[in-house]
């Protein structure tokens, strides 16, 4: 039930993101100065924003960016985290100790202050162009993944340990199955459920983190629309046009709730 609600919420958001370029007749990036903060109407179902752009269309386009950040960060976290968790469980001993101590240390650290440090770094120093939407998304996703992999790694390690302790593993090893084949064909598939849970939560976390970074002025730069920067922008006008702040807030809420529901549903 939860899984179904969650998945349908996410499917809706994904559909919005995919269809965004084909919906609507206006350009969501072209300002219309005579139409600022217009109330909802037939032409603009959710009204217009501070530059007279259609809020509904920008929400759709924002879905692309916010989902890209969320999925990007979560996928990177998933790859790194699964690899680290598997490695720690499989090699054990020294590898396990170092990886898990690193994970503990990262988990105990306050993420946002560090994100602020990392966001204030010069992207040009690591070869990324400054201030372009694509580069922004990548930069934020990488920074978020740098913290997000820990959650995945812990779950993956715990699951891998229990799988590796099972009889069939000993049997397979006795039969001379190569370690690579063992890990990839027998252990990894069994890790899928916990990893899926952790990844779904990572998507939610990344979308929320992007909005927090936008609020601090370190998120996705204009003219690209993300839910985070739409929300951060709207807070400036919260007394004059509170509705403009409502929609992106709601979009974030629904998507994050969708991810949490999926995670919950998978857990059962």
């Amino acid at each position: 039930m939860k899984l179904r609600i969650g998945l349908s919420l996410l499917a809706l958001v994904a559909l919005a993101a995919i269809l965004a370029p084909w919906v609507g007749s206006h350009d969501p990036f072209a300002p219309d100065l005579f139409n600022r903060y217009a109330p909802p109407s037939a032409a603009h179902p959710l009204g217009t924003d501070d530059l007279g752009r259609d809020v509904a269309l920008r929400l759709l386009h924002g879905a692309r960016v916010s989902l890209a950040v969320g999925l990007g960060a979560a996928l990177m976290a998933m790859l790194v985290g699964t690899a680290a968790g598997l490695l720690a469980a499989w090699r054990g001993g020294w590898w396990d100790a170092v990886l898990m101590r690193l994970a503990d240390a990262l988990l105990a650290l306050p993420a946002l202050p560090l994100l602020i440090v990392l966001s204030a770094l010069d992207p040009a120093a690591i070869g990324l162009p400054r201030g372009e939407a694509g580069a922004d998304i990548l930069r934020i996703a990488v920074i978020l993944a740098a913290f997000g992999w820990v959650g995945v790694a812990r779950l993956a390690r715990a699951a891998a340990l229990s799988v590796l302790a099972q009889d069939f593993v000993r049997a397979a090893r006795a039969l001379g199955v190569s370690e690579t084949r063992l890990l990839l064909r027998h252990v990894l598939p069994q890790l899928a459920p916990p990893i899926a849970v952790a990844t779904a939560l990572a998507v939610a976390g990344a979308i929320l983190a992007e909005s927090a970074l936008s609020f601090l002025g370190l998120g996705i730069a204009p003219p690209a629309a993300s839910w985070g920067n739409m929300l951060a922008n709207a807070q400036e006008a919260v007394f004059a046009a509170p509705l403009v702040a409502l929609w992106p807030g709601l979009a974030i809420l629904l998507t994050v709730a969708g991810c949490s529901l999926v995670a919950d549903g998978l857990r059962r």
């Binding site: 100065l33 201030g131 003219p223």
Partner: peptide, 18 residues
């Protein structure tokens, strides 16, 4: 963003990088 739109109208592209 308004400047970018008005310049676009006369065929000048601007890339916003802040």
């Amino acid at each position: 963003q308004v400047l970018a739109a008005q310049w676009r109208a006369v065929g000048v592209e601007t890339r916003i990088r802040n």
